[in-house]
Nucleic acid binder design. Structure first.
Length: 873
RNA sequence: GCGCGAGUGGCGGAAUUGGUAGACGCGCUGGAUUUAGGUUCCAGUCUCGCAAGGGGUGGAGGUUCGAGUCCUCUCUCGCGCACCA
């Protein structure tokens, strides 16, 4: 009852609107009431962001509001602290489910999306979050995705200059001397763009009818739906994220993210230092290049292994081996990624018949092919050192290849040097024998470089980002094809809208559904449109920028707004995007930064992961388990305030924790106690009876409630001030540290105390309501309204209370006394009691006496404000 | 296998820098109001013990006057990556 009323009040008042530079609030807006007639941009800003949801048909689940409540509490808290808070919400609305539904029903995905957004909006608004709804964004809105397409064009029109390490206009790319024809120049540019076309093997998911990025494939299955993924060569758009690998790695140091998340990104980027070593092929001038992190083991390299897809395999294979090699390659090509990883427990491979010369000792070593060597990493070829690599050893033992120990394990660590993979001392290794692994690496690289047969290299696991999808419900590429070449659509022609279709189905052969719209594909001048669409990540890569300036029709975001609001001070969301959205967005942001479109190198300064909420049974919530909690039901029964409070009271935000409906009852009871602290019980009972009789009169009857008779204008007692200020201090500290659960418990402690008071000073209760407001804003606003005039007609901009340590000082303290670290008694002291007195009192304490009796007191340790400990023997 | 994180009552979880272990809430037990239950209020609730006292933060050691917190080893669970040379 009171909740919708306050939600309407906030909406009508635009209470939570944030103001861009040059767009000051009206004088009666509570922001102006608080801050006066000053430019909004002169107030210190705080940009607090939630990961915007995909508006699915299932509606909100209890995991969404967990993060949203946390950010809302912090947003409301900082607003009261005087910060100019930007807290927006929007919809990541392109994506598979709406499209799958469209395929089934023939209904346009736009329609489903609209319905789902309406439902999500209703649910989210019902929770009373302090979003600035005037900044709502929707990635499927043409006014939004025209800028997604525009950013794609920025990538298309740039290259990564290795000299500067930055993205630059493609115009700054210089042509080599031998690139002279227009055709060659065009190809050369196209080969360097940050958005480029590739024909390499990609992750094709037949079930979904689209290709997927590496990040979207988990153990050979699609992240969405868990369908098998196979590798097959297709023409696809890629984004050159690899050129930014080092910066994406380095700049992690500059941002305040959890260690585990940073570590996940580091692992995904996968930097490894080593060397490329060239092996001359026997009876040939050709050299084959391998990557190794252990060049110091070169003397132990007894064979080479190429990946089956390596381009030289055909050339190297001898006639004797040709059939075996061809069979093996064919078998490898047939295998899905899943088979190649999970099912390949046993090493397989075949000999090519060819030999290479080990540059260290000039001995011939056989060249094999095997699928445990990946074409996509390093050079697609390795030198096998079976003595010091587990995989090579397994392979060598199976195929009876020679094993040579060249590293001695350090004393005491492992007696066995065979199979030792750590750092030790080189042995049987010519001029590097006797050196430590680190020294040996340096020396052998220097020697190889001198010979021109190797060099120091750094490799990354990160692959370029496969950016096109063969689906309908995504942003069309702003690209046309003419005479087999791609061209950018003019910026003035954006947005490129998708065509209307009758059939949204993907095809089995990977022709995008957009190809069916002949009218749309074929342009009057003979060019044809690109028919792939962008992945869902395109919209989420930059939405945090659009919030800053949603109405701007000239730019993706206005310069002044971007400079004032960026970067995001706090970003809260689940961990599932660790190497997807969060990596992609950082990449786009860096490109935009290099090109001068944004002012900071990193978008998200601080990032906090919320833990998942498990079902009541301690299992992950899922439809099939039937343990899904629907927020609507909880809100209907207990209200939004109780729901918010419970989500935060369950435990620390980052932690995984199970739902417990009894716990909701607990916080609901707490809110009831707060209510009874303020409201006269008799008048409430009358109200309840009257409402039962005349439910339609509820609104009017509510006004008849009386304040509790104990509320008065008396001076607070020192005891009351102590309770209040202890609460202010604890809640403030906890909100600063995002420890919402313990903050709530401090509020409960206050209410438990205050309920006992026979006199309840208005002043004390008013301050308590400000502390309560971020957590349970509806109830706090309602009670504050009843308690007295609130400036600006909302608590939202009331100054946050400050505590005074003077009120917290205890007059008499029960000071703990320990003997040998065990608690034995207490002594009564005051803050003025001197050290000597405390020690004397402690030693004289009766309970203590019986433990130190007839023993030698060795030492008395006094920890001020904590305890005193007597060490005896 | 590698990396990261976590193990505290019947349960969710408290315990800034080592300093009174179990805040707050749930559940449970008893009582009061009402008595139809519920609501609300009061008291109790780590464990052994009548008590004095002993034991106790996954396990085993260690440092310290003092360890949930620091160190070493170990077990279990969760998450991430996984033939990355």
């Amino acid at each position: 009852m009171i909740e919708p009323r306050w939600q309407q009040h906030w909406e009508a008042q635009e209470t939570f609107r944030a103001f861009n530079p040059g767009d000051p609030p009206a004088a009666e807006h509570p922001f102006a009431v608080r801050h006066g007639d000053v430019a909004p941009e002169s107030i210190e800003k705080y940009y607090i962001l939630d990961m915007f949801p995909y508006p699915s048909g299932a509606g909100l689940h209890v995991g969404h509001p967990e993060g949203y409540t946390a950010t809302d509490i912090t947003a409301r808290y900082l607003r009261m602290q005087g910060r100019h808070v930007l807290h927006p919400m929007g919809w990541d609305a392109f994506g598979l489910p709406a499209e799958q539904y469209a395929i089934k029903t023939g209904q346009h995905p736009r329609k489903t999306t609209e319905e789902n957004i309406a439902n999500f909006t209703r649910q989210i608004k019902g929770l009373g979050f302090s979003y600035d709804w005037s900044r709502e964004v929707n990635t499927t809105d043409p006014n939004y995705f025209r800028w997604s397409q525009w950013i794609f064009l920025q990538l298309y029109h740039s290259w990564a200059n290795p000299a500067s390490g930055k993205a630059e206009s493609i115009d700054t790319l210089e042509f080599p001397a031998d690139v002279t024809t227009d055709e060659a120049r065009r190809d050369f540019r196209d080969d360097h763009r940050l958005a480029f076309v590739s024909h390499a093997p990609v992750n094709w998911c037949p079930e979904l009818g689209t290709v997927l990025a590496n990040e979207e494939v988990i153990n050979g299955k699609s992240e969405v739906g868990g369908h098998p993924v196979v590798r097959r060569p297709m023409r696809q758009w890629m984004l050159r994220i690899t050129a930014f690998a080092q910066r994406l790695l380095d700049d992690l140091e500059t941002i305040d993210w959890s260690d585990s998340l940073k570590e996940m990104q580091r692992n995904w980027i996968g930097r490894s230092e080593g060397a490329e070593v060239e092996f001359r092929i026997q009876d040939s001038e050709d050299r084959i290049c391998v990557f190794t992190t252990r060049p110091d083991t070169l003397w132990g390299a007894t064979y080479l292994v190429l990946s089956p897809e390596h381009e030289w395999v055909d050339e190297l294979t001898t006639d004797d081996q040709r059939t075996a090699v061809a069979d093996y390659r064919a078998a490898a090509a047939r295998k899905s990624d899943l088979e190649r990883t999970e099912l390949a427990k046993e090493k397989t491979g075949v000999f090519t018949g060819a030999f290479a010369i080990n540059p260290a000792n000039d001995e011939p070593v056989p060249i094999w092919i095997a699928d445990y060597v990946l074409a996509s990493y390093g050079t697609g070829a390795i030198m096998a050192v079976p003595a010091h690599d587990a995989r090579d050893l397994e392979f060598a033992q199976k195929f009876e290849l020679p094993v040579r120990v060249v590293v001695q394990a350090p004393e005491g660590e492992s007696l066995e040097s065979l199979g030792f993979v750590g750092d030790g001392t080189s042995v049987e290794s010519g001029f590097i024998s006797g050196l430590s692994t680190a020294e040996a690496k340096a020396k052998i690289i220097e020697w190889l470089e001198g010979k021109g047969q190797g060099k120091r290299t750094i490799n990354f696991k990160l692959r370029d980002w496969l950016f096109s999808r063969q689906r309908y419900w995504g942003e069309p590429f702003p690209i046309v094809w003419r005479d087999g070449h791609h061209e950018a659509v003019a910026e003035s022609d954006l947005p490129v809208l998708p065509p209307e279709l009758d059939d949204y189905k993907p095809t089995t052969e990977g022709d995008p559904p957009l190809a069916r719209a002949a009218d749309w594909v074929d342009l009057p001048d003979g060019a044809t449109r690109e028919t792939n669409t962008m992945p869902q990540w395109a919209g989420s890569c930059w939405y945090y920028l659009r919030y800053l300036d949603t109405q701007n029709n000239e730019r993706h975001v206005g310069e002044a707004a971007e400079k004032y609001w960026m970067n995001v001070d706090l970003y809260v969301g689940g961990t599932e995007h660790a190497v997807l959205h969060l990596l992609y967005a950082r990449f786009w942001h860096k490109v935009m930064f290099d090109l001068g479109h944004v002012s900071m190198a990193e978008p998200f300064q601080r990032l906090v992961n919320q833990g998942i909420i498990l079902g009541e049974d301690g299992q992950k919530m899922s439809k099939s388990r039937g343990n899904v909690v629907n927020p609507d039901g909880v809100i209907d029964e207990y209200g939004a305030d109780a729901f918010r409070l419970y989500e935060m009271f369950m435990g620390p935000l980052e932690m995984m924790k199970p739902w417990n409906t009894k716990g909701v009852e607990g916080v609901y009871r707490f809110l009831g106690r707060v209510w009874r602290l303020f409201i006269d019980e008799g008048s409430y009972k009358d109200y309840e009876q009257a409402v039962t009789a005349a439910p339609d009169q509820a609104e009017a009857l509510l006004a008849g409630l009386k304040l509790h008779a104990a509320i008065n204008d008396a001076e607070p007692t020192p005891e009351q001030l102590k309770v209040l200020h202890a609460c202010i201090k604890k809640v403030t500290d906890d909100l600063d540290g995002m420890r919402y659960n313990t903050g709530i418990s401090a509020l409960m402690v206050f209410v438990n105390e205050a309920s006992k008071w026979e006199s309840r000073p208005r002043e004390v209760l008013g301050i308590f309501l400000r502390l309560l407001n971020p957590f349970s804003p509806h109830l706090a606003e309602e009670l504050a309204d009843r308690l007295g005039e609130v400036s600006g007609n909302t608590l939202a901009y009331q100054p946050w209370p400050e505590w005074d340590e003077a009120f917290l000082v205890e007059e008499s303290i029960e000071f703990p006394v320990q003997v040998n670290g065990k608690l034995r008694g207490h002594i009564d002291i005051t803050p003025e009691t001197s050290r000597e007195e405390i020690e004397q009192l402690a030693l004289a304490c009766e309970k203590v006496q019986q433990f130190i009796f007839e023993k030698e007191v060795k030492k008395v340790i006094l920890v001020p404000n904590k305890l005193v400990n007597i060490a005896v023997k």
